[in-house]
Simulated scan of single mutants.
Amino acid sequence: MKNNGKKIDLRVTRTHKLLTMALVDLLCQKGQLFSNITINEICDKAMVHRTTFYKHFEDKFALLSFTLNQNLQDYLQMDVDERLKEPLQSVSKILFGSVLEKIVQNQKKDEAFNNFLIKYIGEIFRRDVLELKKRGKGYSLPIELVAEFHSGVISLLVTWWIHHIGDDVTAEQMDQYYYQLVNEKIWLE
């Protein structure tokens, strides 16, 4: 099997899988905050040497990003138009009922985790808006400004929603809130 012209190294795949599973297990433990998790804890749980960890990841944030990418493959393969027109419904399809929901619930009180998640989600939406530009979509405002604005709004709405999951706010309601907060005509230009 090849990847970008290079043969896939099963040892690398195995190491990534072990480290990812270890991080997920730690993030799902009640009371265990991402900020308090150490590289040593991750390595011990994964049974991977610390030097091996650093051969693959710069730090635990890089591992978290990799882990999120692995768990969001279905979401990232959705059509960009669908993700942008129904942003919270799109997010709900991959978040709720998955290990990500448990992680996010357990990490609600961790400021570092939440800040990382906001930036991570924002970057996805920023890339999506810029992808529409590549497809020829025109805007009356600078596309970079539109991308920055909407990525920030979506990130904050997802964060708010996560903190209010017990309030039974549906994905459809969240998309309605989104369109009430922003100029919904921007997607219709």
Rank of each mutant, 00 (worst) to 15 (best):
Q29L: 15
Q29P: 03
Q29M: 13
G31N: 15
G31I: 15
G31D: 12
G31A: 02
Q32G: 08
Q32N: 11
Q32I: 10
L33N: 04
F34A: 10
F34H: 08
F34K: 01
I37M: 03
I37G: 09
I37H: 15
I37K: 07
I37S: 05
I39G: 10
I39A: 08
N40R: 09
N40T: 08
N40E: 15
E41P: 10
I42S: 02
I42G: 01
C43I: 02
C43P: 04
C43F: 13
C43N: 03
C43V: 06
C43H: 05
D44P: 06
K45S: 14
K45G: 09
K45E: 14
A46H: 01
M47G: 13
M47C: 13
V48K: 06
V48Q: 13
H49A: 07
H49M: 02
H49D: 10
H49G: 08
H49V: 09
R50C: 03
R50G: 06
R50T: 14
T51P: 09
T52S: 10
T52F: 03
T52Y: 08
T52W: 03
T52Q: 13
T52K: 03
T52H: 05
T52D: 13
F53D: 11
F53L: 07
Y54K: 07
Y54S: 09
H56A: 12
H56Q: 05
F57N: 02
F57L: 00
F57D: 00
E58N: 09
E58Y: 14
E58T: 15
E58S: 15
E58L: 15
D59T: 01
D59R: 00
K60Q: 10
K60G: 06
F61A: 06
F61D: 07
F61H: 07
F61S: 05
A62E: 10
A62R: 07
A62S: 09
A62I: 07
L63K: 04
L63A: 01
L63I: 07
L64D: 00
L64S: 04
S65F: 02
S65V: 10
S65C: 06
S65I: 04
F66S: 12
F66K: 10
F66P: 04
T67A: 02
T67D: 10
L68E: 02
L68I: 02
L68Y: 14
L68G: 08
N69S: 11
N69G: 07
N69C: 08
N69R: 09
Q70L: 11
Q70Y: 00
N71S: 02
N71V: 00
L72T: 10
L72F: 12
L72S: 05
Q73L: 14
Q73M: 15
Q73G: 03
D74L: 15
D74F: 13
D74Y: 14
D74H: 13
Y75N: 06
Y75W: 12
Y75C: 04
Y75I: 01
L76W: 05
L76M: 14
L76V: 00
L76K: 12
Q77P: 04
M78D: 12
V80P: 06
V80M: 05
V80E: 11
V80N: 05
D81G: 04
D81M: 11
D81R: 07
E82S: 12
E82F: 13
E82I: 11
E82N: 14
